[in-house]
Design a protein around this nucleic acid. Sequence first.
DNA 1: GTCTATAACACGATAGAC
DNA 2: GTCTATCGTGTTATAGAC
Lengths: 250, 250
Amino acid sequence: MPATLGGVPAPSAPRSTRGEQTRSHILATALRLFRDEGYDAATMRAVAAEAGVSVGNAYYYFESKDHLIQAYYEEIGKAHRELALARLTGVRDLAERLRVALDSHLEVIEPYHAFAGSFFRVAADPRSPLSPFSAESAPAREEAIRFFATVVDGSSTRIPAALRAELPRLLWLLHMGVVLYWVHDRSPGARRTAELVERGVPLVVKLIGLARLPGVRGALDDAIALIRSLMPPEPPIAPEAVRAPSRLLR
Amino acid sequence: MPATLGGVPAPSAPRSTRGEQTRSHILATALRLFRDEGYDAATMRAVAAEAGVSVGNAYYYFESKDHLIQAYYEEIGKAHRELALARLTGVRDLAERLRVALDSHLEVIEPYHAFAGSFFRVAADPRSPLSPFSAESAPAREEAIRFFATVVDGSSTRIPAALRAELPRLLWLLHMGVVLYWVHDRSPGARRTAELVERGVPLVVKLIGLARLPGVRGALDDAIALIRSLMPPEPPIAPEAVRAPSRLLR
DNA sequence: GTCTATAACACGATAGAC
DNA sequence: GTCTATCGTGTTATAGAC
């Protein structure tokens, strides 16, 4: 399979053969069913039937049901960045920029809240390629981190140099934490998560400012050294690791 | 079912009827198979066969396969506390006490590292009663938080009053974070997680000390207020919520 | 109340024919 | 590329035996 990667066509090859059309059709059907019926109710049989293809054909294009979620993530990520970047023009205050970034995300994922648990269960599996920490997720993860880099870079708020380099990754982690909270948030309209962002963001920015204090500086340097050591920016991804069968082990 | 709760007998009723013996036997067999073969390979059919009972009988005592994991958690928690408390006698330095607490846990869960992903996938589901944040997990969670309270209380290190009340819960959260890292840690012997504890604990204790700084104090108070508001110590658990069917929804 | 035996269901996933 | 048939799984149901 030269141009495909775990069933996903290389981004640079948008040829619209018949196969590509079938693939897109199955995917669109699956995403619609996910949203309308939930992940569990949208069985592969249902997806295939609704798309007018056989189960085997669906598996021909998507290695597993989980791989259909990958497309969902990509769609979410793209929609989030587009919405947030549009709203960020002209905004220079770091707290405000961060608030816009996180709030936009909550807005984009809101329709999926009822079924977030199903998606999350899959994503939380460390063996799943869908885990946000997996090697297969590296491209999406790095794109998200780059997004937070632009959130930081576009701000006029002064940031201690030692922190600046690591801040995008830390904010992405914070973002993951907000999502974790959101997934568990059963309050109507997920208003507690909204409150977490509203009150948490100024706090985070205040903490960033505190990094300048003489006493704090040493601890910060230690923390950054620790993060650098335990979260290597580019884990040694052998090329074959990306091409390896991404199906769940066992 | 008066004395049982989701198939688990009330802790205060250790009567050793024949049923209890069967139950323990099934459980012990399941845990052994989990450890030796992994969660996925240890099918319900295999557990029942190995225990010499019928599948129906296994389901008579355990509502679902996931519920077998609940017993695993309880066993882990108990072993951890026993090991850690024994090692903590005479230790007064907070950093050292915290290090012992976290290292002991890593030691206890080590045999399960290969299959941690399977367990974790189940526990990560917010709808699962096995989630560490679920209402059903409240007793185990509170016991764990009480454990961290003794870790804090037994130390001679001075802790800012504002922080002291929330510290056990925060340390439990930190603990959850360590486990999250451990589950994803593929380094031999999970040595990166060990490094995280070794270098992270002094850092955390240093940060606790920094809470005294005048500039930090305000941010800390904000943070604690936020935590109190968004992580209510006792979420309104209606009694029926505990008795409600704990099977996964749908 | 405890337990067996067996069949059946729907699911994710696969094999192999066309 | 696409299909039908089939597998193994968690789980449930039935119908009873001690």
